[in-house]
Design a protein around this nucleic acid. Structure first.
Lengths: 145, 145
DNA sequence: GCCAAACCCCAGTGGAGAACCGGGGTATAC
DNA sequence: GTATACCCCGGTTCTCCACTGGGGTTTGGC
């Protein structure tokens, strides 16, 4: 399980789409990238991946952009991360063919640790994070006054 | 949190030391490497790291080698992994200086997921894995007969 | 119809780190 | 004193991440 910069970018972009979910207007890559300080050509690739996985849908041509494919409370962080990082390492790495007894045991613990992390990512939805952000910003405002 | 090949090598080596823990004789790098199919010059570096962290101690000179520095039930997998991978990423990555509100929230979830994985690694000791291996091997033997 | 705005696809680059390998130095048992 | 181990430091190769760029294709507005 990787939690790299890629996943963070994707999540920030999806949070932006969540914020504008009510209006049916699509959001453009450039706007998202500018808002979240993400290199736009890179974000483009990530959004393409998210689209192929069915998390967002796109509208081509002028006035086009991206929208969430489903409601923000139906998209978990695990959906996003496993889509971006590509959960393709199901085989226990094709390096050591017979895989010793010790190797298997270590691998099983690795798996268990990864599943524990996944469980955390699965219990949060985009909606949850958006709400958390809203209350956080309101708090910041109170401190400012 | 990384769970790379390095950590696996280190764990396998420590399991080998656990198996020979009763006899006070040190185990040599070459023996461990041969037993676990690890490149020996690479394993040497890992053992040096483990030594600097106080998980193993070494005996130099002829008839030298490595021993566990404490009892195998007092060494958790988290001890090993955080020593090898280096748990130096406490600062929220020194890339984006002001770190937006969204960035902070994402980072906090990342932290929570990492801590969940750490908790799994912390509940297993070298002793636990060694026992698991012993019972597994006994099981294999039964199947063989 | 045409053009500009947007997405779409594919390919390449630079840097960092992982996994090794090797050359010498140093301590210690015999 | 010498063989046997660890010790330290550096280099090499390879892969992957983050990012960039060059074109194409679809679409709305004039």
């Amino acid at each position: 399980m990787e939690l790299s910069c890629k996943s963070e970018y994707a999540l920030l972009a999806l949070l932006e789409l969540t914020a504008h979910y009510n209006g049916g207007e699509p959001l453009q890559i450039r706007q998202i990238a500018a808002e979240q300080n993400i290199p736009d050509r890179y974000l483009e690739q990530l959004l393409a991946t998210l689209r192929r996985s069915g998390l967002v849908r796109s509208q081509r041509g002028a006035k086009g952009g991206y929208l969430l494919a489903r409601e923000p409370w139906k998209i978990t962080l695990l959906d996003v991360v496993s889509c971006i990082e590509g959960l393709d390492s199901q085989p226990p790495e094709p390096n050591k063919d017979p895989k010793s007894v010790e190797g298997m045991i270590v691998w099983e613990v690795w798996q268990e640790a990864g599943q524990a992390a996944d469980a955390v990512l699965q219990k949060y939805t985009l909606q949850d994070l958006a709400e958390k952000r809203d209350s956080r910003q309101q708090l910041d405002l109170m401190y400012y006054i």
